[in-house]
Amino acid sequence: MRLFWDRGYEGTSFDDLITAMGISPSSFYNAFKSKEALYQEAIEAYAQASGAWFYDILGEPADTRTTLERLLTFAAAEFTRDDLPAGCMIAVAATQCSPSQARLRELMATQRTQYETAMANRLRLGVNLGDLPATTDIDALAAFYMSLIRGMVVQARDGAARERLLEIARIGMQAWPTKDGGSSAA
């Protein structure tokens, strides 16, 4: 998972994989069948382990603004951990790959859509609870904050410090809709 996360699917060679796992080529094929099958397992493992915090935060019993602010703050910390590759494996994975890997690109796009849908669902709950104005364009707001998170991923991959990502998150929260339909920055 870490190799794919750090180097991407196409940047990780078969030799890299067997060396990291300490197994022979035949053992690799017996266990995983193909590099693509292993990649799919790695994505699932990432989503369950490193990506679970996203869903956990969305499910916390707090008002919607606090939830989103916590999500962005936690993302800044998570994307800049010293013990893991920078950024988010799903956000940066398979956005650019050869035409022969269209299936993997679609898998990653589906994963990213699931995260955005989860955020939109939490924002809808916020409207129902009165945390957000009823006129809020939920899908656009979810797309905005997911774009912000993906931008933070790229910043982290480029070496941005956690403090920089926290500042981006702070500025991003200024776009939060207010009860009168404006934004926090207005």
Rank of each mutant, 00 (worst) to 15 (best):
L71E: 12
G126L: 09
E60M: 06
V154T: 11
Q114L: 14
N30G: 02
L72A: 10
I18C: 03
A143H: 12
E10R: 05
G181D: 14
K179H: 15
S183W: 03
R124T: 10
K179W: 14
Y39I: 01
W176N: 09
G181C: 09
Y39Q: 02
L104C: 04
P99N: 00
A118T: 01
A169V: 08
T113N: 01
Q40Y: 02
W53C: 03
T135M: 14
G151K: 01
Y39E: 14
S13T: 15
F144R: 13
R65V: 02
T135H: 14
R70S: 13
Q114P: 00
L17M: 08
A75E: 03
A91Y: 06
T66L: 07
S98Q: 11
M108N: 13
N121G: 06
K33T: 10
A94T: 00
L3H: 08
N121C: 07
L68Y: 04
P99Y: 05
D16I: 07
I23L: 05
L166K: 07
A169Q: 01
D158I: 02
T73M: 00
R164M: 07
G159L: 07
L84T: 07
A62D: 15
M119S: 04
Q174I: 10
L68D: 03
F32C: 01
A62L: 15
E167S: 12
S13H: 09
R2T: 12
L129A: 09
E10V: 08
A45I: 02
S50P: 00
A175C: 06
A185V: 13
P99V: 00
E163Y: 06
I43L: 15
A52G: 05
A156T: 08
Y145M: 03
A20K: 09
P61M: 04
A143I: 06
E10A: 12
S13C: 08
M152T: 01
Q96T: 10
F32Y: 14
G151L: 03
P99L: 02
V92G: 14
K179V: 14
A62M: 14
S24E: 14
A94E: 08
Y46K: 02
A93M: 00
V153A: 07
Q114I: 05
D83R: 08
P99G: 05
R150Y: 02
R162Y: 10
T110C: 00
L123W: 05
G182D: 13
T117V: 15
T80M: 00
M108F: 07
R65N: 13
M173F: 13
